[in-house]
Amino acid sequence: MSRKSYLWAGYTVLYIAALYAPVAFLVIFAFNDSTAIAFPLSGFTTRWFSVMANSPGLIDALVNSLKVSSSVAVISTVLGTVAAKALSRAALPGRPALLGMLTLPLLIPGIVMGIALLIVAGAIGLRLSLFTIAIAHVVYTTPFAILIMLPRFEGFDRNLEEASRDLGEGLFFTFIRVVLPLAAPGIVSSLLLTFTVSLDEFVLTFFLAGNETTLPLYIWSQLRFPGKLPGVLALSVCILCFSFFLVTLAEWVRRLGSPANPQ
């Protein structure tokens, strides 16, 4: 049935093309020498990138985003790693319920999470700021960290920790000398991915932002000005490339972890 296989493969290619096409248009028009996002194309230019770079507020938003996302990456990776380690024991009582509860944020609509946290912030008198954004992001990204680290810990030979203790180490040094080095590639992966997710996150950020903007909010604010659209596109291209790079890096690091660990 080779012809059917070709049709099937062809459909897959079409699917991938359809996935990338809208994004491809963003990239095309970021380099288009016209303020109108329309065909026909007017010629190649990179001026929108310099326009974007000189926009007021952009640099601040960028710095804020980096601050928030890097702290979120670290915190959620730590929480997620420790939780995944605990959850990797199949015999843990109540494990399915715990796993469900800890990954719940992935299933709750962002808007519901956002307003719930907003209400709590108001109730305890917490002023909205980058801090509240960071907290919301940690809630959302920790499940990602858990889901990345869990398979790594589950494939972990339990005897390795027992061997370490047998050879004289207590719980702490066993963690430092055995568990951590072997989990390291997963941890790096988790850091990179939670950073990316936090960087791009919009809905929670919208509800929990104070006066300081982050990048997604900045983009949102620029969307209502048609003249600024190409600049926004240029910014999008930069973010796209950066996210793409981070995700590929995360995957590469994850692969690094594999051959040395026959798991």
Partner: peptide, 25 residues
């Protein structure tokens, strides 16, 4: 296939705005 997913949701929605728009693609 999953890499586009990791880019900003906002941008992917916005991309459709410029595709389907009155003066769009």
């Amino acid at each position: 296939i999953t890499i586009p997913f990791w880019t900003s949701y906002l941008l992917r929605v916005f991309a459709w705005k410029i595709i389907l728009g009155y003066n769009g693609v």
